[in-house]
Design a protein around this nucleic acid. Structure first.
Lengths: 218, 218
DNA sequence: CTACTTTTCAATGTATTTATTGAATAGATA
DNA sequence: TATCTATTCAATAAATACATTGAAAAGTAG
């Protein structure tokens, strides 16, 4: 049957896409690259792996057309090829978080470990920022902020927070965000702020989630 | 670092989701189950594999919570757990079809093999069915039609088409659909109809694509 | 309770995937 | 062109995934 061969080929191609994201490290790499482009060496530090292994993972992602390369001097810079990749990963997460109880439990354990921080969603933020006085801060490294950030957010990298929080008005509620639900920086920021008598909340969603939401609004 | 352990665990869980769909046969199984529920034995025929292998694939999908089981007499009936699975798979396909040139080429080769049939999308169907006289037929097996079909479609399983087409008015344009872009039945139906002097078009999308679209409209 | 059917499990051999190390390459800079 | 550096390739060893066969189990029906 000729059409059977065709069918098998198509499913094999589709599986090539899912195989590319079937590895935990590669998922993490995509998440990191979703924030900003990286060289192989930088990235290997970010995901705690040898340069050679990182390179190999990147090649898998590249052959699945999920990342693209450019060159900057000696460095090869990897970046996400297309917003369709963000959507794909986002729908994997949506399914994963909803369905896999184990993930829910892990996140729960982790959150309660973080002093029971109060959290906020993007939608809640939009509503509250109209009513009350809110200061939205982006605690990711400055390069990631520069590569793209939520409108009206102030860049306050985590390692500068202690110095810079003196500028913050105590009258405002401070909302911190970072890379998204799996990222710990915003939680750390809120802890620090609270210890210093600020009203502070963490927003679980990050820049990527916000960006994807913008499409839906248009 | 405690948060590193957490992160690795979460990515491992997420990868469990993508690993479940990282195999061509499992993708095919999900597609088949998207049309209607099947027993292991039926399914193994549908995807041309041994019963034991099919069972093992189903267990992988079950442990990823993508399918659920029920019992009917001696048979264990597998079905898709949730429409979130359809959405996930649909976004994989969306990315796959858009990005992977090889798939595009395969589909192109396949289509041109099918006598250059004229095709129609769901959106075009909606527009045209208001203006002109259209008869929409569902050429999948009757059980799949009964498990769910596009509103106003007439069930005409492919193997009954030759007898039943006598009822069709020659004044109407006949639009045939089946399981979706990878399915060959609608193409076969159109070929037969054209050979018998009907005006006939194939719609590439199938019932699942239509169903997902209904959500977006609400 | 027994017989029967469908599904699952276990064992096997093969193939793929993965992280690491160390060597090779490609490309930029001088 | 020669040198230097980041990246990629190759080889390895361990682990995991895969399809098949045949046996075991689970559950229905009589």
């Amino acid at each position: 049957m000729a059409s059977n061969v065709f069918k098998d080929q198509v499913y094999t191609e589709l599986a090539r896409v899912t195989t590319a994201i079937s590895n935990p490290k590669r998922m993490e790499i995509i998440d990191v690259l979703s924030q900003k482009a990286y060289s192989v060496e930088e990235l290997s530090k970010e995901v705690s792996m040898s340069v050679a292994s990182t390179s190999q993972h990147l090649q898998v992602l590249k052959s699945a057309k999920m990342v693209v390369t450019s060159r900057n001097g000696n460095f090869v810079i990897y970046s996400i090829s297309d917003d369709a990749v963000l959507k794909l990963v986002s729908s994997v997460k949506e399914f994963g978080f909803r369905k896999i109880a184990e993930i829910e439990r892990l996140i729960q354990d982790f959150k309660t470990g973080q002093e029971g921080l109060e959290t906020l969603t993007l939608d809640e933020l939009r509503v509250r920022s109209k009513k009350s006085n809110i200061l939205l801060i982006d605690v990711r490294p400055e390069e990631e902020y520069e590569a793209g950030h939520i409108t009206d957010a102030l860049s306050v990298p985590l390692d500068q927070l202690k110095k810079r929080m003196k500028e913050f008005p105590k009258s405002k509620t401070i909302v911190a965000y970072c890379r998204g639900p799996l990222c710990v920086m915003a939680g750390d920021a809120v802890s620090i702020l609270k210890r210093n008598q600020f009203k502070a909340l963490r927003m679980e969603e990050g820049y990527v989630e916000w960006k994807l939401k913008q499409y839906d609004l248009n």
